[in-house]
Write a protein that binds this DNA or RNA. Structure first.
Length: 865
RNA sequence: GGGCGCAUAGCUCAGCUGGCAGAGCGCUUCCCUUACAAGGAAGAUGUCGGGGGUUCGAGUCCCUCUGCGCCCACCA
């Protein structure tokens, strides 16, 4: 047991304790624990391909305090951590960091060395060329960089004092994750929950991959209505379009069935300008009479409404935009005459933007563009990480059914959402609205490289055609597999791509397809069913509000299918970090501070205090002021502990209040003074409040109640009994005070342990051998409060202090006579604390009389000289 | 267009089942006091966003308006 330092300090204590906790396995999960005693937490593994944001510190600290509470409250806490490293975010970081680009057509180069390591030469338009490298080379670099990034995260999380069991660490690209992800997918396939289809797909032309609904966002972008004339037998029909370049893909015109203006045209055909293609005029309820001219051109595909019309009205497909975002080089076969083919020739090979200009020129020249384009601002769909608008292309993709096209499944997932307990409760609305608004199944395949491969092969027919309808699956015992490197059962590697042979699925799964399985990955569902059964379904999923629709929902989907259960019983949703201007903090604004610098400046506990003092789910300003307050609290705890232990000695055997073992009964046997008993009764109430708050995941309220007591304890109670505790009035009264002080300080250390793990451990260590974080959460000892209103005593303290302050004398100045008048209750309180008050305020004569109200008459000794 | 949330001291926020408007920061004053000067003791500061209602009583419950934030929404 270390000696109490002469001058306690917070500086440097983190490294010492973090190392000790790991060495002693303080946070290690007990694999023999029974499910009933386990509290399991499914932390979303952070994406490591980016800098560490204060938002991460914020949310993870809040959850850590919940974990620490449950651990002290006697639960076997299962608290793993993982890294979300597979996916496009990592690929992009690798591209920038090494100056490379994955090109699967490149051969593997065993001696490849990237042009540089480090963030790309900065500055806009530096425009360095990325070197194309093979997929194996690229994946190797992904592994290299994520390993580095993960080490940085681990160092930060350890410094932050997150009480993970580091032996349970995982990464979403590791063998366990790939095996879990592939097995779950194969089960989905087997049960008909996963399917592949060739269909119009929302496509990012820069990353060249399909993206899912959850990854799409609307951005307001400038555009323009172009009024175009279509030609009918009875004259021109005018339509407004923001995408005139898609005229060549027009397959129909559509009006609302009730729109009388266009009723006569329905069923007829009109000719497109420039290209002269005959297209039918059809009706559909989605057409909006008040938008544009009330009749729209349907193209394959300008937007998702086009897809709906195309599907429901059984229209032909006339696509020209390729996966690279450019107009196809080949002239479309549906253009019959030479003029039309020539017109297309001016568009071939252009980007969408270039093609629009070229098309407008032709329309203007032909007179089919009526008037000038009218600029508007309208929402355009983007991939959330993308910089160019999404296009819609037809491609074959894998989907998992999520209720987007199936009311029964949708209802089942809505029911799951209702079964889940949300903190704060109103966050459930986000889930409900998302599920209710789904408009398609979950697209899980990605045309990318650093991910979990879709574990399937397809037969290649004798004619060389790929049979996508009869995928070949691996044996579960062989997972994880890479179908682009291994052959399916019954085939040899040289049959790859040959007639009569096979071909591997080239795609990887969406990162959510793996991270939706974090409960199964962390709990080793595939490899350790015994462990899995002890911790699943989990007790808690903490996370940010922005990933309810993605991470939370997809995890519910997978668990529902695989286990017919919710993945967790409760979810806590943290708030945003706002900068001092009340805007969401963001890197681009340059207002991001690095957590490590803050830890160094204020101490980890101070930063944690800031996070814990924020209400659950409430957006919170980044506040260094709040960290200063936390630092003051932590420092105060060290000092008051030093004071109390200096009085009572630090022997472990004196432990009171049930810190070790059950300790019932002996706790307050020595505290007999009414002032001490009243304090202990108040302490009991604080324990109850803090416990109740923690039970409902309200770490902030638990801290607030504890802190309020703590400052009152330090400012009033300790000052009040200090003289008595020193022995000024004999052994008996001193023993009562010392016992109460010791009991209170040990309770306070434990109440503050979830918030300030370092300062509490440091101060606890001066009188205990074991960790405070393994100590039992305090229980009320049942102190019966005497008829003594401590608030009255505090009021007298405060009023006399004020008199001294206003008289500009030291607080130690002697009060020659204090006369207090008060109601019987007030008089009783002051009488009971009479000697302590006289000590604390240096009062020579204290007179107490009955009166209608509390009133004080303070006589100070005349100033010397 | 739909939904959710927020609005309390100069600032950041508590105020949980309705009962005397609070804390911290900042500001002002005092105190080198034996746990604590990166400290301590004290002080000033309010149209609880506006309006209406329920109630003996509303910061708190209901309605409504305004402002801000976030999420969602078929890009003609």
């Amino acid at each position: 047991m270390p000696a109490i330092p002469e001058r306690p300090t917070l500086d440097g204590i983190e490294a010492r304790w973090a190392e000790r906790w790991e060495a002693d396995g303080v946070y290690r999960f007990d694999r023999t624990a029974q499910r009933g005693s386990v509290f399991s937490i499914d932390t979303p593994p952070p994406t490591v391909s980016g800098s560490i944001h204060m938002g991460t510190v914020f949310g993870y600290t809040q959850t850590d305090s919940l974990a620490r509470y449950r651990r002290m409250a006697g639960r076997d806490v299962f608290y793993p951590i993982g890294w979300d490293d597979n996916g496009l975010a990592t690929e992009r970081r690798v591209q920038n960091f090494y100056g490379v680009r994955c090109d699967p057509s490149q051969p593997f180069d065993a001696d490849f060395t990237p042009p540089f390591r480090g963030d790309a030469p900065s500055g806009k338009g530096s425009g360095h060329q990325e070197i194309p490298i093979s997929r194996p080379n690229f994946v190797t670099l992904c592994h290299e960089l994520t390993a580095t990034d993960e080490a940085v995260f681990e160092e930060l999380f350890r410094r932050l004092g997150l009480s993970f069991d580091w032996t349970l660490q995982y990464a979403t690209i590791d063998d366990v994750s790939r095996r879990t992800s592939q097995l779950a997918f194969l089960h989905n396939l087997q049960r008909g929950e996963a399917y592949s289809a060739e269909a119009p797909t929302v496509w990012d032309v820069d990353d060249r991959t399909a993206v899912a609904q959850a990854e799409i966002e609307d951005r307001e972008r400038p555009g323009a209505y172009h009024l175009l004339a279509f030609h009918g037998p009875d004259g021109d029909v005018l339509i407004d379009t923001t995408r005139p370049e898609l005229l060549v893909s027009c397959v129909a015109m559509v009006a609302h069935p009730d729109d009388e203006r266009y009723a006569p045209l329905a069923g007829s055909t009109v000719r497109t300008p420039i290209f002269g293609v005959e297209v039918p005029v059809v009706t559909h309820p989605l057409a909006q009479p008040d938008k544009g001219t009330g009749i729209a051109m349907v193209c394959t595909f300008g937007d998702t409404t086009d897809v709906t019309w195309w599907r429901e009205l059984d229209l032909p497909t006339r696509s020209v935009i390729g996966r690279d975002g450019r107009f196809a080089a080949a002239t479309p076969p549906w253009l019959a005459d030479d003029a039309a083919r020539a017109a297309y020739g001016a568009l071939a090979g252009l980007t969408v933007k270039q093609a629009q200009s070229a098309m407008v020129e032709q329309l203007r020249a032909s007179g089919d563009l009526r008037g000038d384009p009218r600029p508007i601002t309208h929402p355009v769909k983007f991939y959330e990480r993308g910089s160019r608008p999404l296009e819609i292309v037809t491609s074959r993709q894998w989907y998992i059914r999520n209720g987007g096209r199936d009311q029964d499944r949708r209802d089942a997932f809505l029911t799951r959402g209702k079964e889940l307990d949300w903190f704060p409760d109103h966050m459930r609305h986000r889930y409900d609205h998302w599920v209710e608004g789904l408009n398609g199944d979950w697209l899980v395949s990605r045309q990318r490289f650093f991910g979990v491969p879709i574990p399937l092969w397809y037969p290649v027919g004798d004619d060389g055609a790929i049979d996508h309808d009869h995928p070949m699956v691996p044996d579960a015992s062989t997972l994880p597999i890479d179908p682009s490197a291994e052959a399916p059962p019954g085939y040899t590697p040289d049959q790859r791509g040959r007639p009569g042979g096979f071909i591997g699925d080239p795609d990887v799964m969406d990162t959510w397809a793996t991270s939706s399985l974090t409960p199964q990955i962390a709990a080793r569902w595939v490899d350790e069913p015994n462990l899995f059964a002890r911790v699943f379904p989990m007790d808690l999923r903490p996370q940010g509000p922005e990933i309810i629709r993605t991470w939370l929902f997809s995890t519910v989907v997978r668990s529902h299918y695989e286990h017919d259960a919710l993945p967790w019983a409760n979810t806590t949703i943290n708030g945003w970090i706002l900068d001092p201007d009340r805007k969401k903090m963001s890197k681009s604004k340059g207002n991001v501070v690095t957590p490590m610098a803050l830890f160094d400046q204020y101490g980890t506990d101070a930063v944690r205090y800031w996070a814990i003092s924020a209400r659950p789910g409430v957006d919170t300003a980044f506040s260094e002021d709040q960290m200063k307050v936390g630092r003051r609290l932590a420092t105060k705890l060290l000092n008051v502990t030093k004071f109390v232990l200096g009085l009572v000695g630090g022997a472990d055997g004196d432990t009171v209040g049930g810190a070790d073992g059950d300790g019932q009964g002996e706790a307050d046997s020595d505290a007999v003074d009414p002032v001490d008993l009243a304090m202990l009764a108040r302490l009991d109430a604080t324990i109850t409040e803090a416990t109740t708050a923690f039970e409902s995941f309200d770490y902030a309220r638990a801290l607030e109640r504890t802190e309020a007591f703590f400052w009152w304890f330090c400012d009033d109670y300790v000052e009040l009994v200090k003289g008595r505790a020193y022995g000024g009035r004999g052994h008996g009264p001193a023993a009562s005070a010392r016992h109460a002080l010791r009991q209170a300080i040990e309770v306070l250390q434990r109440l503050l342990a979830p918030t300030l793990p370092y300062a509490t451990e440091e101060s606890w260590s001066w009188s205990h051998d074991g960790s405070v974080h393994a100590a039992r959460w305090p229980q009320p000892v049942g102190t019966v409060a005497p008829a003594l209103d401590l608030d009255v005593v505090s009021e007298v303290l405060g009023r006399v202090r004020r008199v001294k302050t206003e008289a500009k004398v030291s607080q130690r100045a002697t009060v020659t006579r204090l006369a207090v008048q008060g109601t019987p209750t007030q008089v009783a309180a002051i009488d009971a604390a009479r000697a302590d008050l006289a000590d604390a305020l240096t009062i020579s004569t204290l007179v107490v009389v009955d009166g209608p109200d509390l009133a004080l008459d303070v006589e100070l000794s005349p100033p010397a000289g």
